[in-house]
């Protein structure tokens, strides 16, 4: 347990059932916000203080001319060296040693939001405009310290999301990429040595989301 936890997000198995997006709302009691259809299934169209887990959809055509529709179920990467913490000098943002979870506390309201957000390679932190506090995925800290798995992971039907101890997840990522490479030569795990939430993709990460592999 010394290396903490990790989450594997294998986009090749994601069916966009949106269980994860809703499960996060349900567990954390986050409100549903007002949205409109912007020409996509994606909604909300961005993370916010009220949306910590979001299904990003992207579509186009592959070289053969066939369509593609990629699903990228985004959340905070819980980096090993969190860029957001550069601004945090008084414990506004903490990193739990045991689990590795990176947590925004109430004190984040006193941080420079723009700088904090700028410091995150994945553009994750979001601010509540009224209270000025910052919000993001908590790795379901309360659940994982109570013998439960994160709500999003539990919700996932196809095993696209898996939660476990970091060494096992890293091994699983490696094995899956190897398997996928037979059919998808560009398959890769995104920055596995830097993040705890490791995404596996079968194509250029930018095709999924502009910041999928970092800014």
């Amino acid at each position: 347990m010394s290396e903490g936890y990790s989450i594997l997000v294998d986009t090749s198995k994601c069916t966009a059932c949106r269980g994860c997006q809703i499960a996060c709302k349900q567990w954390n009691g986050l409100p549903g916000t007002q949205t409109k259809n912007e020409g996509t299934y994606e909604n909300p169209v961005d993370l916010s203080a009220d949306t910590w887990k979001i299904l990003r959809y992207s579509e186009g055509t592959v070289p053969s001319g066939a369509p593609f529709w990629y699903f990228f179920s985004e959340q905070c990467r819980h980096c090993l060296s969190p860029g957001c913490m550069a601004e945090s000098e008084k414990g506004e943002i903490v990193q739990d040693e045991k689990t590795g979870a990176v947590l925004f506390t109430l004190k984040t309201k006193s941080l420079n939001y723009d700088a904090t957000r700028e410091g995150c390679p994945y553009d994750i932190p979001r601010q509540n405009p009224k209270t000025k506090e910052l919000f993001k995925c908590t790795m379901c800290f309360d659940r994982i310290t109570n013998n439960m798995i994160p709500a999003c992971v539990k919700s996932c039907p196809t095993g696209a999301m898996v939660f476990g101890e970091r060494p096992e997840i890293l091994d699983a990522a490696k094995a899956r990429v190897q398997e996928l490479s037979k059919k998808y030569p560009n398959a890769k795990a995104i920055n596995p040595d830097e993040v705890r939430v490791i995404y596996i993709v079968t194509d250029d990460p930018k095709k999924y989301w502009k910041f999928a592999a970092g800014k």
């Binding site: 269980g19 809703i22 499960a23 709302k25 349900q26 539990k154 919700s155 996932c156 039907p157």
Partner: peptide
């Protein structure tokens, strides 16, 4: 596991 509707 649950999809969006069950989760909601």
């Amino acid at each position: 596991a649950l999809c969006a509707k069950g989760a909601s």
